[in-house]
């Protein structure tokens, strides 16, 4: 794998981590991110392979069509998240986590069996809007920068503060007049849109899309990004996503032990760094040290 391809995948990792992070920011452990990632990927795969008008005049897949796919995928994911979010978000803690695992698995079984998703084989020959991984890296990191900016803005906005309040104590937050159900649903919808946009880019990047793209493994890996990096400030999941996606590549020299070491990282992360690598306190201390000449 070229270095640029790894950069693209690291960007995907960071984006998915932010998608898990947003519901967690208001205390909701949702593992639905891979489901929306898969939905985004199918939107891209179906539009680009079944709708000839999008393919342009032959010289590569037009960027405007890619933009159109992104514009379509976002509301599709948002609509699904809105419909499912209301009932699902009434569940708490481990029940919410299990319900979202179930959603992802149901989606996987449907995609494996339905005809329009290409069944077990999936969809092949998704056209390439970029000539090489460089273009993908640029697109992914631009999207990542946008989402990071949104998350950073959120921390200072009314919505972000409401999310933090719900995470600390939902009952108290509601007593203060925060509409907790609406805030949680908003976070869930934004999370779904981020995952779906990532899915659109990933489908083109991988050139093929199938039901195996999202599943329980993906739920866990994305959750590990957040737990590893830290779930109290947006920089944590970004770092977790970048590092853990790169980890299997970095571990390639150890060969067969690679996945065992990967498991050890997930096992020991919560024990050694219960708050994740990056916490607001550590960040503040780092800033102080840097400011001092």
């Amino acid at each position: 794998m070229s270095d640029l391809s790894l950069l693209v995948q690291m960007g995907f990792g960071a984006l998915l981590a932010l998608s898990v992070y947003l519901p967690l920011r208001c205390g909701q452990l949702s593992l639905a991110t891979p489901g929306f990632y898969v939905i985004g990927g199918y939107v891209a795969a179906l539009l680009s392979t079944r709708w000839p008008a999008l393919s342009g005049d032959g010289a590569g897949y037009p960027l405007t069509s890619l933009a159109l796919e992104l514009v379509v995928a976002a509301p599709v994911a948002a609509a699904v998240a809105l419909v499912l979010g209301r009932p699902v978000l009434q569940l708490r803690g481990i029940y919410l986590a299990i319900a979202t695992i179930a959603l992802v698995e149901i989606l996987r079984v449907l995609n494996l069996n339905l005809a329009w998703s290409g069944g077990a084989v999936g969809i092949f020959g998704i056209p390439q809007p970029f000539a090489g991984p460089g273009g993908y890296a640029l697109a992914t990191w631009v999207l990542l920068a946008l989402v990071c900016w949104l998350c950073a803005r959120l921390e200072a906005m009314r919505l972000g503060r409401a999310m933090a309040a719900i995470r600390d104590d939902e009952l108290a937050a509601r007593c203060m007049g925060i509409p907790s159900a609406d805030v949680k649903l908003t976070a869930f919808v934004i999370s779904a849109v981020i995952a779906a946009l990532t899915g659109v880019l990933a489908a083109h990047f991988l050139n093929t899309w199938n039901a195996r793209q999202g599943g329980f493994d993906a739920s866990i890996t994305t959750l590990a990004f957040v737990v590893f990096g830290g779930s109290r400030i947006w920089l944590g999941p970004v770092l977790g996503g970048l590092v853990i996606t790169a980890l299997p590549e970095l571990l390639r020299p150890v060969g067969d032990l690679r996945l065992i070491l990967f498991g050890l990282v997930i096992l020991l992360g919560p024990i050694l760094f219960p708050q994740g690598l990056i916490t607001p306190e550590r960040l503040a201390r780092l800033q102080q040290t840097l400011r001092r000449p």
Binding site: L29, G93, I94, A97, I220, L223, A224, V227, D256, L257, L259, I260, F262, G263, L264, V265, I266, L267, L268, G269, P270, I271, P274
Partner: peptide, 25 residues
Amino acid sequence: RNAEPLLYLISSLGAGVVLVNLVQL
């Protein structure tokens, strides 16, 4: 340490990943 439940979920999954890959190895 009286950790929050989310952490048990991750650490036990990590243990599962290690065991499964050990068997595979």
